[in-house]
């Protein structure tokens, strides 16, 4: 494939687009891992939301 005299500009544009896409995917994946870990830690400590307590009929944890 011959990209002509402006190959650097074309490759830079695709490189920048790829970097931004990778950054978006990484942001979503890292954020998911962080929130899932925080939820798991709180649940392991017995903390539940009021809605969950109503559904499950539990009174455990800090929610009162």
């Amino acid at each position: 494939m011959n990209l002509g005299p402006y190959a650097n500009f074309i490759l830079s544009a695709y490189g920048a687009a790829a970097l931004i896409v990778i950054a978006m995917v990484a942001w979503v994946a890292i954020d998911h891992r962080r929130q899932a870990r925080a939820l798991a830690e709180l649940e392991a400590r017995g903390v539940t939301r009021r809605a969950e307590q109503r559904q499950g009929g539990t009174t455990s944890g800090a929610a009162s």
Partner: peptide, 22 residues
Amino acid sequence: AAMRNEIMRRRVRTMLMLQAEA
């Protein structure tokens, strides 16, 4: 995926507040 993360973030926030309240 980001909406799911945001819902989870709000759940974490609510649970932390309930923990602090208790």
